[in-house]
């Protein structure tokens, strides 16, 4: 069996809240085993797009294929869009992990408890087996020693690394990151970005909504630039950032970057 070339294929995706349409007719292919960064101004729809891929938001029109399987809705040959039965939605979503801006660790569980919760309640693993797997994931993000700590006892960077371990424990094929460092103090972003960098190097398929242009430029293999609910540009960092730049992207970079980060992007 040959896998479809794209891990995620988005076709004609639209999303409206009431009358306000925040995503217009998005077409995007996300490559397998690569890190794709979604960048763009606030309100450009990049987080909404990511949440549609996670099926936390339901798109109004269009389809999303995960490894060739429709997510949530299926377009019938007669053009009708029908909602799939819950077990099929669950099956496709099981391959997707998500890391949130606000970490969203469950406060009443330890770090290990957060990582093992779904292993026990969803996958039905024994406590011992779940703990062993959970510890392995915590080791992967360098937090084995903090396993018995509660989220309130961890720094923001540590909490986000636990959240990454929690997502990894379910062995997803695709990992989504929604501004994973935006809630962190600057000195704590490094530890999280390093973990993500390592995951990218291991060949994990990742989609990252980020304001860290430096990270996008150095780790992202593909970058999609969104503006006003449309994918304006889509390519490798070299293609996007090399002169001549698209004027909207230049404008975005000038407003969103401080000089230090801008220097990173100067064509060598």
């Amino acid at each position: 069996m040959t896998l479809p070339p794209s891990a995620i294929a988005i076709r004609g995706l639209c999303k409206s809240y009431g009358k306000a349409e925040v995503l217009h007719d998005i077409d995007l292919e996300i490559a397998r085993g690569a890190t794709t960064c979604l960048i763009g101004p606030s309100g450009s729809g990049k987080s909404t797009l990511l949440r549609c891929i996670a099926f936390l938001e339901e798109a109004t029109r269009g389809t999303i294929l995960i490894d060739g399987q429709p997510l949530g809705f299926e377009e019938r040959p007669d053009g009708k869009r029908v909602r799939l039965p819950p077990h099929r939605i669950r099956a496709v979503r099981a391959g997707i992990g998500m890391v949130f801006q606000q970490f969203n660790l469950w406060p009443h569980m330890t770090a290990l408890g957060n990582v093992t919760e779904a292993l026990v309640t969803v996958k039905g693993l024994s406590r011992a087996e779940a703990d062993a797997r959970g510890m392995a994931q915590l080791r992967r993000v360098g937090l084995e020693a903090r396993a018995r700590h509660y989220p309130s006892e961890l720094s923001g960077g540590q909490q986000q690394r636990v959240a990454i371990a929690r997502a990894l424990a379910l062995e997803p094929a695709i990992l989504l990151f929604d501004e994973p460092t935006a809630s962190l103090d600057p000195e704590l972003t490094g530890e999280v970005l390093n973990v993500m960098r390592d995951l990218g190097a291991e060949g994990m398929t990742m989609v990252v909504v980020t304001h860290e242009i430096g990270f996008a430029a150095t780790v992202g293999q593909r970058i999609a630039f969104l503006d006003h609910g449309r994918v304006l540009l889509n390519g490798t960092p070299g293609e996007l950032f090399a002169a001549p730049r698209h004027p909207r992207l230049t404008q975005f970079l000038e407003t969103y970057l401080d000089r230090g980060a801008a220097m990173l992007l100067q064509p060598a």
Partner: peptide
């Protein structure tokens, strides 16, 4: 916070499991 339930949703917990566990 809504996000805690979204995290549970992403981890595959059913609505009842989300209620009972989180």
């Amino acid at each position: 916070p809504r996000g805690l339930l979204e995290a549970a949703d992403m981890a595959g917990l059913s609505p009842w499991q989300q209620f009972r566990r989180i």
